[in-house]
Write a protein that binds this DNA or RNA. Structure first.
Length: 278
DNA sequence: TATGCGTTCTGCTAACATGA
DNA sequence: TCATGTTAGCAGAACGCATA
């Protein structure tokens, strides 16, 4: 499969464990109204947006705007082909264990850092997909990480400075969001800090500082994370060479791609491809 | 918001290993 | 021999942080 510049690999991944169901949806996806008897469902767009119908009301969820659906409540989800959405379904009893046995009462609407969630999902999925079936400890450990992350994120949402900053960026600083949108549209091209700062109507210094306060990483690190995500999809799904992929994604050289990929993923591109394809 | 400075990373190049 | 994957060295650019 060959990809042109700025094209995004469409895919839908579902991984089930005894206490969890992890979804990453990056293609058109719609469900009819349904309920889960025992599972909470947390739906979070990681880029673009989606339409979620719950509590007898339709919600247009933007990037980073999560929705917590309680068990036994009817709901439906609609994802367009231009968005990416992570859905986490967790068993009610298992969730309670990692919520310090406190009542499972959360706001339906939650702000969750899409970059952090995407990164964590990548790590969870890699562990679950590559683990040795004879070693259930890896699955249990990953379950614990997911449940702990959710318990902490949903319970501490009111005081999470980074999430608050993200909400701020989502609603108040439309210039910063415009810069973010620009980065998503042009991350395979050569970008300059001055260009992005100009879009956000900030000096380069203030832009970098503000960006990091909101997303927890520098603009360049954010661009790299987008490129690595796309590189992993192409390594898994296409027959393109590593050199071709590094060039298509805007890396200045193959060596830079190797270094960034190895640091981010913990394996060389070829090792990653072999691991995914078995 | 800007500056200075030390640290980290990138881009380029060359070289080596491996397999067809 | 050639294509591809991988690694290392070096100069310059970008970044982080303290400070004004």
């Amino acid at each position: 499969m060959a990809y042109g510049r700025n094209e995004v690999a469409r895919m839908k991944i579902r991984i089930d464990t005894p206490r969890l169901s992890l979804w990453r949806i990056e293609e058109e996806h719609s469900t009819a109204p349904h309920i889960h008897e025992r599972e909470f469902q947390i739906t979070v767009p990681i880029y673009g947006g989606c339409r979620f119908v719950g509590k007898q009301q339709a919600y247009e969820l933007a990037c980073g705007e999560g929705f917590v659906q309680y068990p036994e409540e009817p709901h439906e989800l609609h994802v367009s082909g231009e968005a990416g959405v992570i859905v986490l379904q967790v068993d009610r009893d298992g969730f309670a264990e990692f919520n310090d046995r406190q009542p499972l009462e959360f706001d339906h609407r939650q702000s969750i850092d899409p970059v952090e969630l995407s990164g964590r999902f990548r790590k969870w999925a890699t562990t679950l997909l590559l683990h040795d079936p004879s070693e259930p400890l890896a699955v249990e450990e990953t379950e614990a990480q997911v449940l702990s992350f959710l318990a902490r994120s949903l319970r501490g949402n009111q005081t999470n400075r980074r999430d608050a900053a993200l909400v701020s960026a989502s609603s108040a600083d439309r210039h910063m969001r415009t810069a973010l949108d620009y980065m998503h549209e042009h991350y395979t091209e050569k970008l300059h800090i001055d260009t992005l700062a100009g879009i956000a109507l900030l000096s380069r210094f203030h832009f970098i500082r503000t960006f990091k306060a909101i997303l927890g990483m520098t603009p360049y690190q954010y661009i790299l994370s987008l490129r690595i995500e796309e590189a992993k999809a192409r390594l898994a799904r296409s027959g393109a060479t590593v050199t071709e992929i590094s060039h298509d994604l805007g890396f200045g050289s193959a060596s830079q791609f190797y270094r960034v990929f190895a640091k981010s993923v913990g394996a060389t591109p070829e090792q990653y491809r072999s691991g995914v394809r078995g």
